[in-house]
Amino acid sequence: MNKFLKDIGIFLVLLALLLFVAMFITKLTVQNRVSYNIDQSASSIVLGHSHSECAFNDERIPGLENLSISGEAYFYTYTKLKEVVSSNENVDLVFIEFTNNQISESINDWVWKEKYLSYHYAIHSAFIDWRDKLLILKNNPRGYIANLPVVFKSMLKSALKGENLPSVYGGYTALEGDLFDYEKKDPKEGENKEDFVIINEKISEIQLNYLDKIISFLEEKNIQMCLIRSPEHESYSGLANEDTYQDVLTNRFVDVRFVDLKDFPLGKTHFRDPEHLNSTGANIVSDWLGNLLDQDQFFNSEKKHWTFKELEENYNN
């Protein structure tokens, strides 16, 4: 038995060493070969989850690049933002989607649930700070360990291909169909329920902490930032926590510039479902945002929080 245990021990140590060295080399290779470059003409970017991914058609907004991606928590946005900013010196304005479901505690799953680890974590893991990794390890150690092979494979693939991550993952997505079509669908069919965040009243401190980190980072880099809420249809169930949302906004982000497009005048033909715009809606909103970006005085104004109506009255878009 002793010989067996000794041999197993040596084999496992060798294996651990091999995996550690392989991971380390792969990580270094990823850091050297993988990039976060965006179009050189882009000076502003949008980051967020599927709401902003489907709302802002960057082909219609000069100088803006949409880097949003479905299911992204601020935890991953933070790492992505740091890398994008350090690789693209001409970025001087950052929009961050800030909407109802992003403050709900249930969205914490987007940070450490297996499904998200195998995608978002796998993409950015080589760039995530070890202190941030501890957060995942603490909350889902089983998922973290079980996903290591997936993460390793993803890193290896990125390294071998020398991927430029913003051009491979995320970006504007044009959705087809409208809310009329959506309402006709059998709710049991088609949509993956897991993809929708069930809003609860509890606040996700993790999300808000990472949003704070994003804000601090941009302040430190002297880059303008603006929180933005993409248009939502009145039937969107996420509006259930609107009071909590407004509390968070006024108490924690009072000094941060915020553009609220929730009440952007759009109809059922402009939405694919209650929380995502279709391409027709996205084009209207993108043209409007493009005009706003031309208004320099907006970004210099003392007033920080703006509703769509106030912007219309003041800047006559």
């Binding site: 060798l14 294996l15 091999l18 995996l19 392989a22 092979p149 390793f152 494979k153 290896l156």
Partner: peptide, 11 residues
Amino acid sequence: LIIVAMIVLFS
């Protein structure tokens, strides 16, 4: 070890 690496890499 190669077999283990293949299990990790090509699962």
